[in-house]
């Protein structure tokens, strides 16, 4: 889905400094209505602070924020049409599941029967029924996650903020919730802003991804853009780890004299490499079995790079193999991108 013409959230040169720490430093951003937008970055990169700026838990030190055309700075969190799903859910421990979900409606003065009906609907939306009278402490992590989602969605916010919502779940549950979130996004057509440090999560779920580093956005684009065409070494490394070649090394591997990214899965080994336009002889240093793939470390021209080979391709250490890749797989970048 592409963003529609209406802008849901806009940042104009927004900064948030904590003393000498520049948590967010001059961020420009436009999130379209109905977009599933991911903020990706390592911890301390400013992505969560950006989310808190939208929610209103933080005030910008400088710059301007708009939510659906309205100035947001100076507006208290309870006066914004924005709801948050917190990292550790932040469910009220002294309330039942139903009371938790109905909370937003209760403080808006919606009568009891009506708000309980809406809360039940929200709970069935996240497929958590029959738990109305339980306390959060009696639920599993995945169930709490669903309650937190229902509690935010029941208010029909214009923007739903999700702060690493899947971080505390185990792998299986995380994948299930990823599907669930995508389904909800499609079904409700709301704007989702999703903070994560997990690049897989960002790439698989979002319409667009902003990669954060040191308080700044280093690249914004579709998941394909970010993955296939990283603009800096930092993005290439952080998003799906890549082989990064220096401007000196790149020409020896078929590229131009620029910082260059070569994704490990574009490197083919053995007979299949013969059809590729860049070919080398390599020595296998080490192979690591990872289920579907084998992570294969290779030495080419004295340089160590790694490839993802199908798990059927098992090699001996020290074995000489032919490797190859398409010239188009070499992606030249703007710079190192670590000095931001």
């Amino acid at each position: 889905m592409t963003p529609t013409s209406t802008t849901a959230v806009m940042f104009e040169n927004v900064s948030r400094h904590f003393g000498a720490v520049r948590a967010v430093d001059g961020v420009d951003l436009k999130i379209g209505q109905g977009e599933f937008f991911a903020m990706l970055g390592p911890s301390g990169s400013g992505k969560t602070t950006c989310l808190r700026l939208i929610a209103g838990f933080e005030q910008p030190t400088a710059g301007h924020i708009e939510i659906f055309g309205e100035t947001a700075e100076g507006l208290a969190p309870n006066r914004r049409d924005v709801n948050t799903v917190f990292q550790d859910y932040a469910l009220f421990p002294h309330m039942t599941v139903l009371q938790n979900v109905a909370y937003g409606l209760m403080v808006r003065g919606v009568p009891r029967l009506e708000r309980e009906k809406c809360a039940r609907e929200a709970l069935s939306l996240v497929r958590l029924e029959g738990m109305d009278l339980r306390r959060p402490a009696q639920l599993s992590g995945g169930q709490r996650q669903r309650v937190a989602l229902a509690r935010a969605l029941v208010n029909r916010p214009k923007v739903l903020l999700l702060d690493e919502p899947l971080g505390a779940l185990d792998l299986k549950l995380r994948e299930e919730m990823q599907d669930e979130l995508r389904r909800l996004h499609k079904q409700l057509g709301l704007t989702f802003v999703f903070v994560t440090h997990d690049q897989g999560e960002a790439l698989s779920m979002a319409d667009r991804v902003a990669v954060f580093n040191k308080g700044r956005i280093v690249q914004i684009g579709t998941p394909e853009d970010i993955y296939q065409r990283p603009t800096t070494r930092f993005v290439a490394d952080f998003v799906g780890s890549s082989n990064v070649l220096t401007p000196d090394e790149a020409p020896r591997f078929g590229g131009v004299s620029r910082w260059t990214s070569l994704r490990p899965e574009s490197i083919l080994i053995g007979a299949v490499a013969d059809a590729m336009d860049v070919r080398h002889t390599a020595e296998v240093i080490d192979q690591q079995f990872q289920g579907a793939m084998r992570k294969t470390r290779l030495k080419i021209n004295g340089l160590e790079i790694y490839a993802m080979a199908p798990s059927s391709q098992a090699f001996d250490v020290g074995q000489a193999v032919t490797v190859g890749w398409a010239r188009s797989a070499l992606h030249a970048m703007d710079g190192e991108g670590n000095d931001v």
Binding site: A55, P77, F86, V107, N155
Partner: peptide
């Protein structure tokens, strides 16, 4: 926890609520 207070404000509650 401080985030319960944030969650309450986020859900539209005034400080008094």
């Amino acid at each position: 926890p401080g985030n319960l207070i944030e969650a309450s404000a986020d859900l539209g509650a005034s400080p008094r609520d």
